[in-house]
Design a protein around this nucleic acid. Structure first.
Lengths: 224, 224
DNA sequence: ATTCTAATCAATTGATCTATTGATAAGTAT
DNA sequence: ATACTTATCAATAGATCAATTGATTAGAAT
């Protein structure tokens, strides 16, 4: 095998992974899968894609080595192949944010009050939560919470926020988190809590980033 | 703007970066650019692509925010937009290596003596080089060496290795490095040095990774 | 002015990608 | 057996991508 040929083939293999990341729908699916193991129909529902389309995208992700799957009865559950995939997604997001001007414009256009929403770094939250100074709020759907969440976090899915406000201590600051740095659930939660007069901020990053950083995690078995 | 629309648009932007990484030729160009600032015709020559084709790929990389360019006289020089791009490329490589079975097979097929070529970690090299125990050998072309290299590294481009062997101390171990973890220059160098009875290993990673790790670097002005 | 070089642009062809549609397979439930 | 659910497969049309070709622009040199 020639040296040039080797190189060429090797870059072609790396490009397969790049190709898997080259479609917005696949990136969205990856973000959902990064929360918890998911079946195809869950992913289809939450992404708004058809079943067949979702299935095909998932197979492309699988061939690129980004996700693995497991069959159980009728359902097929997909999960990330490893934590390094979260690292890759973060690197992609980071580069896009720092270098693609459109991303910043988009974020600013949607998050008009962005500057009021300075995020809390993970290390700071961990410290303050241990001292009981803050309420940690998980605004993702119950299934995602059940699959794993921050220690001591209270789960109130975003649609029920106002209805179940009594679960949040009136006198503590609330730190909300959700799926990731650009998931808007936590942004919305903070905005709504502030309208209700609460002291609220959001966590920098989401659950996958927290987990990837090696910080402590609780799952359904030990939840409150 | 609806929340779903925002999310959709945002993922589409991230996918633009993924798309830039979805082609082997572009990844190869990025690796060359990661070594040093490069003009379009240099890149065309070294990659074997036509001028027009190279130019078009470079523009795609530019639109994705991965490279920037600067015009000087007739020439246009391209450079990485930031060090985070090296981090992204490493994450891509890492995931591909760990999860795409074909990559491993490819590497094993080419590097038949791979197990004899255990790389030296950067930290170890830095330590041993400071104590004068090893000769650090840069086997990249002179232009790349001039744009930046490891402190005290001796530059012998691979084709001239045997001819200029006298520049390497016979009694010290040689540690060779090149463009990156899969650049075959360093592999070849080690293999050839060993055939000549020298004690040689290669550095883990290449110059971009060394630089990205924040380790000390020399450039042409202070070279030996 | 003319010529040359470096780079980009514009148009084209063939290949690949995306989403849809309808069919099929595998497992459950009645 | 029959019906239902979940997921995949197969075929298709339209969109996008990649590489080539030839023309064009911008700057340098004679």
């Amino acid at each position: 095998m020639s040296s040039r040929g080797f190189k060429h083939d090797l870059f072609a293999q790396f490009a397969r992974v790049g190709k898997a990341l080259s479609n917005g729908n696949r990136l969205e699916l990856l973000e959902y899968i990064a929360q918890a193991e998911r079946s195809v129909d869950e992913l289809a529902k939450v992404s708004g894609l058809t079943m067949a389309n979702t299935s095909q995208h998932l197979q492309q992700l699988r061939l690129a080595g980004l996700v693995s799957c497991r069959k159980e009865g009728l359902k097929v559950f997909y999960t990330l192949s490893g934590y390094d995939v979260i690292g890759l997604l973060d690197a992609l997001r980071g580069v896009a944010e720092r270098h693609v001007a459109d991303v910043e414009r988009l974020i600013n256009a949607y998050l008009t009050v962005k500057d009021n929403l300075e995020p809390v770094p993970a290390a700071e939250l961990l410290h303050r939560a241990r001292e009981g100074l803050v309420t940690v709020l998980d605004v993702r759907p119950v299934e995602e919470y059940a699959a794993g969440h921050l220690p001591g976090a209270i789960n109130i899915p975003l649609p029920e926020l106002e209805a179940r406000l009594d679960r949040l201590d009136l006198h503590k600051e609330v730190v909300a988190y959700c799926r990731g740095p650009h998931c808007i659930l936590a942004f919305d939660a903070v905005e709504r809590l502030r309208k209700l007069g609460r002291d609220a901020r959001r966590l920098e990053g989401g659950f996958p980033e927290w987990q990837h950083a090696g910080l402590p995690v609780e799952d359904a078995g030990e939840s409150h």
